[in-house]
Nucleic acid binder design. Sequence first.
DNA 1: TTGTAAGCGTTATCAA
DNA 2: TTGATAACGCTTACAA
Lengths: 345, 345
Amino acid sequence: MAKDRPTIADVASRAGVSKGAVSFALNGRPGLAQATVDRILAAADELGWRPSNRARSLSVSKAFALGLVITRDPAVLSSDPFFPAFIAGVESVLATRGQALVLQVARPGEDEAAGYRRLAQDGRVDGVFLSDLRHDDPRIDLLSELGLPAVTLNRPEGDSPFPAVCLDDRPGTVAVVEHLLELGHRRIAHVAGPQAFVHATARSDAFVATLAAAGLEPVAIEVSDFTAAGGIEATRRLLALPERPTAIVYANDRMAIAGLGAAQQAGLTVPDDLSIAGFDDSELAEFVHPGLTTVRADPYAFGEAAALTLNQLIDGAGTDDTVADVELPPARLVVRRSTARLEES
Amino acid sequence: MAKDRPTIADVASRAGVSKGAVSFALNGRPGLAQATVDRILAAADELGWRPSNRARSLSVSKAFALGLVITRDPAVLSSDPFFPAFIAGVESVLATRGQALVLQVARPGEDEAAGYRRLAQDGRVDGVFLSDLRHDDPRIDLLSELGLPAVTLNRPEGDSPFPAVCLDDRPGTVAVVEHLLELGHRRIAHVAGPQAFVHATARSDAFVATLAAAGLEPVAIEVSDFTAAGGIEATRRLLALPERPTAIVYANDRMAIAGLGAAQQAGLTVPDDLSIAGFDDSELAEFVHPGLTTVRADPYAFGEAAALTLNQLIDGAGTDDTVADVELPPARLVVRRSTARLEES
DNA sequence: TTGTAAGCGTTATCAA
DNA sequence: TTGATAACGCTTACAA
């Protein structure tokens, strides 16, 4: 059992001042002689005193914590390169401010609203990150109703009272398609993510638009679900097409890697018979055979920026300064061996 | 802004009782007439009152939260199937008790002790999960010094004051090796994880022991780092051996999948020229080509059991009932196409 | 420049 | 069975 922690009263009496003075000294407020401040801080140091979060929380009605609710199936969540890096980025800024991260994972079917409600009503967090934004996302109304500050990862469609931190998926997709066009491909298909998600449609829209700009139409667009199983399914359907595509652009690496497996199982050689591109640059992308051409973003920086922005919002709550949206550098194309020049057959 | 929440005093005055009575009614303590209890609960309901976590925290010196510190590189963390499912399992029990999960990810190089210290000193959590146990793990001394309750995932080597929740990795590894032996393999190599980790050595020990029981020695053991890059490296070294192994057992799927890529790149056909087995049954294992023979555990159940056990410990702190260790059903072999009968060449 | 005292919303103690 | 009242440890008006 750890010995009882010193309280602010102990520090005060040791320094020969009042509790109020200690509080002022700690928080660097003006109105104290430098000498007393020093004396107080010294006393605090000797006693090894650190203010109690719980007492502070009660007193100032703050949690000193941020929340992240991830609404995904755990199975889908694993092998997703985004969140671990994102969280690490978030924490790099929380650590310096003594804040904690409260994590909640909800299965898609479950009542995710309940999760946010709990976080808000229990006063667990001072704000939340809104990830995996959906079209007409009900969460933004929910959160403004709950009065819980939030930051959206990318911009929602309608009006949003919350600042957005954005990493545009489209330039990466455009780059992939242009890369394939340069390699001579004309029959290009797309395996998209669930169209409920803003980032999924952003990618498929960019895909279609880039082809259109070249005067082409997609061979097919298979809407899938970002899982490996879904990637397999979609790939099989595409390969069964009367006019098989010569290249497939997947909305994420997991589907792409699964698709690669499906193509190989179907007896095709990648990239000779079929070019394949992913999205995310997950760890395995580099190491599967052949290495996967994909698109790389920087989720760590995304996390940093989101945390910084959310804290700005929280700190300034009440102030009328609206917090500015943040635009991060877009994802970049990473060319590997899974895409190749189209051989005339 | 959400309207001001009602406090216990509001409920008390509405029900015409004292605050103490409300507290008793809420916590179902004896000593109140049933009629008053009903009246109080009704009043609370009408006002929509829920007790404030912050006030409770201060009053009873509890955080109503559990902590998980993950000491891994974010890049390594992604594409690890364990933690998302484990966390989901943990939360399935936390949700019913109104507890929250505080997550911290630390890079291996960083001072992880500082992370636990912060959690303890800030009173953020009532207990923590100790994952990725290492040999002579310094964290168990640290935590008992901090007086922070903990549960270890698997059993540490030395004496530990903490209950352990165990999922034995060895039977799975034994099963893999026996499977390969049955297929006629005799030259089997192993790509192990960092030997600082208890689970990594458990797997390599089981590997060696099972071969030994069959009167065999490993062709080679490559100690790697659980990453895809490490898996590639190790595989290349094994394939360059004068007497190439006919089968390789990897300590996790990520290295195995990368190794599969490396073997294919080296012109080998899996499983004809080389059998490959992993460990984890990550999502992609089923869908790479050929499908990966691997070992499946149940991290969700692991999380549930760990959370239950940690809460038992916390609830009973002070009591002398020591909390019993929990033994979970071991991981099971999943046979796919990446392993095959050895063809005499 | 410093000290006093009143919150914050619970739980716990102890008379009545 | 009840109802005051005192913690819990901090912040913050307001006095001095």
